[in-house]
Design a protein around this nucleic acid. Sequence first.
DNA 1: TCGGGACCTCACACCAATGTCAGCTTTTAG
DNA 2: CTAAAAGCTGACATTGGTGTGAGGTCCCGA
Lengths: 118, 118
Amino acid sequence: MRIGELSARSGASVRSLRYYEEQGLLTAGRDSAGRRRYPESAVARVALIRRGFAASLSSRVIADLLPLLEAACVPRSRALLDAERQRLEAQIAAMTQARTRLDEVIALVTDPTRKCDA
Amino acid sequence: MRIGELSARSGASVRSLRYYEEQGLLTAGRDSAGRRRYPESAVARVALIRRGFAASLSSRVIADLLPLLEAACVPRSRALLDAERQRLEAQIAAMTQARTRLDEVIALVTDPTRKCDA
DNA sequence: TCGGGACCTCACACCAATGTCAGCTTTTAG
DNA sequence: CTAAAAGCTGACATTGGTGTGAGGTCCCGA
């Protein structure tokens, strides 16, 4: 199929599909006019790629992961994914801490002698 | 005081102090040679600015907030901060959902017939 | 008078996926 | 035949606090 159809069937924009290719996540053949041609399996591949993005994985990590998944190499895939999970946890922790800081500021603003001109 | 001393006393880099000024968070006088001069109160102001950043506020929001704090306008400050808190909560929720997605991928990889070549 | 340190402005780099525009070719419908 | 639709490449914008470097001014001590 061509890129427009893949876009419609996968939900990814045409721009995104070209980007995935640029990042080495998706390969495409070319027809005589230079247009990308995709096999049926590309739909599933894009779905997997998008799952990765939805899981906050970067294109780089997805590029590393896809070959491992194809090779069905569980331990290595796990190692990669666990590291990403840890990164994500750290980010969540950072934002949670920021929320605590924000609550402190809110308390600071709210508690003292309150006066307002508007 | 000059920018180097303010940097040392506040913990913010010289670069950051200039950036704060550019964003309208911090004002500075100039001496005859064009160098920035800060009053003692600048130390406290930078501390407050940095608290804002630590609470994940953007320079834009801090710029809006500082005048309200100076006017001791609690309700408006609260409105602003509450809105930011909500934004932060939404981000935390998004990342938490991403973690769930990641866990799904991990389950997907881990569960099936496991085999590995490395 | 010379060296160096502190300061100045301007500006690019970073991270990263996507939107969008420009300018072009090819295919296809009418 | 022609116009529209679909595709192509290439490139810039977005977001934002900070690092870093170039190139210049100024001031102080030796």
